[in-house]
């Protein structure tokens, strides 16, 4: 066999064995990546956009109105919750802890709830909120693109949404994502 033929033969073997291996590794990469992606976490188009304007009666005091403008000039957290939401209960102690730290005011958006049930939940578990706005029709929720309670929005001094957490704020999310973000926005 000539030298030239040997070379084409080895190129053929190379393709025959390495090409499927390459394809396989590519597949492994994408599947592996897929494992750590959560299809439930839909990226919000509202990040870095002004928070939707709204005015709602407060949960505990229906006579009083809360509007987004009340928080202008402050970094604040809007936490969407409901008495019927199981995950909110798990998140609740973390919110209580955050409110004790006093680094950020937390406003609740009581979403598609009954007023009595909402108030009772806060009386029983403790109230981490500066106040809760009562959104029983869920219209403000729709404006914020809420689809899975709990959801939390961190809003900066200019009323722009800077961070959104879909689902539970775990202690880990609090210390690794939320607190650093709060500090950063408070400094700005």
């Amino acid at each position: 066999m000539s030298e030239e033929k040997k070379q084409t033969a080895s190129a053929g073997t190379f393709l025959r064995f390495l090409l499927p291996l390459g394809v396989f590794l590519g597949l492994v990469f994408f599947l592996w990546r897929g494992l750590s992606l959560d299809p439930k976490e839909v990226p919000s188009p509202l990040i870095d956009k002004p928070a939707p304007d709204f005015s709602l009666a407060q949960l505990q005091d229906p006579q009083k109105v809360f509007s987004r403008k009340d928080m202008e000039g402050k970094v604040w957290l809007l936490n969407v919750w409901a008495s019927w939401c199981e995950t909110c209960r798990e998140e609740h102690p973390v919110l209580l802890e955050l409110s004790k730290m006093g680094v950020v005011p937390i406003v609740g958006l009581n979403y598609k709830d009954e007023r009595g049930a909402g108030i009772e939940t806060l009386n029983k578990l403790g109230d981490p909120y500066q106040l809760s706005a009562f959104d029983n029709e869920g219209k403000v929720g729709i404006d914020f693109g809420v689809y899975a309670v709990p959801e939390s929005f961190l809003i900066d001094k200019h009323g722009v949404i800077r961070y959104k957490k879909i689902g539970e704020i775990t202690p880990e999310v609090l210390s690794k994502e939320l607190l650093p973000k709060i500090q950063e926005l408070n400094r700005a």
């Binding site: 839909v42 990226p43 188009p45 693109g145």
Partner: peptide, 8 residues
Amino acid sequence: MVARYGDF
């Protein structure tokens, strides 16, 4: 809808 929930 897209403004609230994105292209998704």
